[in-house]
Simulated scan of single mutants.
Amino acid sequence: MTLRLVVLVSGSGTNLQALLDACADPAYGAEVVAVGADRDGILALERAERAGLPTYVLRVKDYATRADWDAAFTQATARHEPDLVVSAGFMKLAGETFLARFGGRYVNTHPALLPSFPGMHGARDALAYGVKVTGCTLFVVDAGVDTGAIMAQRAVEVADDDTVEALHERIKTAERAMLVETVGRAARDGFTVEGRRVRFGQP
């Protein structure tokens, strides 16, 4: 069975493109069935449309409350019947309704080795702290900020003359490879979440 992916985006869509390229191989085991966004006019939506994929855009400011937006976004995502929802640079936190529907099936990347340096500025914070190794994490989203069970991590060395921008670019390269490899593994082997542990393979 092919794993159905809905990919959520807010920006240029480089992670989305990496997944689309991987899904072109039937042996990968997954297919992107739709792309959702919280803003229009972004490159990621152009990538989706070029690939012939359905897209949907729900802007927070168009709803009376954040909870209303979360409920609507949940419904819009559920219409595409995803097996796995992938945040690929999606810049909105999932709300209670979304997590109630997709908990355990919603994954996100972070540009640091969690639990170190959570939040919006993983690369900047790691560089400021003076670590010699940082990296990226793929995790199963829960109600906290970057606190979910970890699916995969990749290490990236910090150079003495690194800038935030240079470091972040190397992290993003590692992140794309990690995302593609791990989503493919999840598609082919399945995974279960047991407390803090993510185990691949059928239970």
Rank of each mutant, 00 (worst) to 15 (best):
167 L>A: 02
132 K>C: 01
132 K>P: 00
181 E>A: 15
140 V>W: 10
132 K>Q: 14
173 T>K: 14
157 E>P: 10
168 H>A: 12
152 A>Y: 01
157 E>D: 14
164 V>N: 11
175 E>M: 03
176 R>T: 05
182 T>K: 06
172 K>H: 12
163 T>R: 07
160 D>G: 01
163 T>A: 03
184 G>V: 04
165 E>W: 07
157 E>L: 13
142 D>Y: 12
171 I>Q: 01
158 V>L: 07
163 T>E: 09
169 E>G: 02
167 L>D: 02
179 L>H: 10
139 F>H: 15
164 V>I: 15
175 E>C: 01
161 D>S: 07
182 T>C: 11
132 K>S: 13
147 T>N: 09
140 V>S: 12
165 E>Y: 09
143 A>P: 04
150 I>R: 07
175 E>K: 03
158 V>P: 03
153 Q>H: 08
149 A>G: 11
174 A>G: 05
165 E>H: 14
144 G>Y: 10
141 V>R: 00
158 V>G: 03
163 T>W: 06
154 R>H: 13
146 D>I: 01
140 V>C: 13
152 A>R: 03
181 E>K: 14
136 C>L: 07
162 D>E: 12
152 A>H: 02
139 F>D: 00
167 L>R: 02
178 M>W: 09
168 H>P: 00
132 K>W: 05
184 G>I: 06
153 Q>V: 11
166 A>F: 01
170 R>T: 02
170 R>K: 05
170 R>M: 05
163 T>Q: 06
170 R>A: 05
168 H>C: 04
147 T>K: 08
182 T>Q: 12
176 R>G: 05
144 G>N: 12
176 R>D: 05
163 T>P: 06
176 R>N: 09
168 H>N: 15
174 A>F: 02
169 E>Y: 10
184 G>S: 09
169 E>I: 08
154 R>V: 12
184 G>T: 05
172 K>G: 01
162 D>I: 00
144 G>H: 11
181 E>H: 14
146 D>Y: 01
146 D>N: 01
150 I>C: 06
141 V>F: 04
184 G>P: 08
172 K>A: 13
136 C>Q: 07
169 E>L: 14
179 L>N: 09
153 Q>C: 08
178 M>S: 07
183 V>A: 00
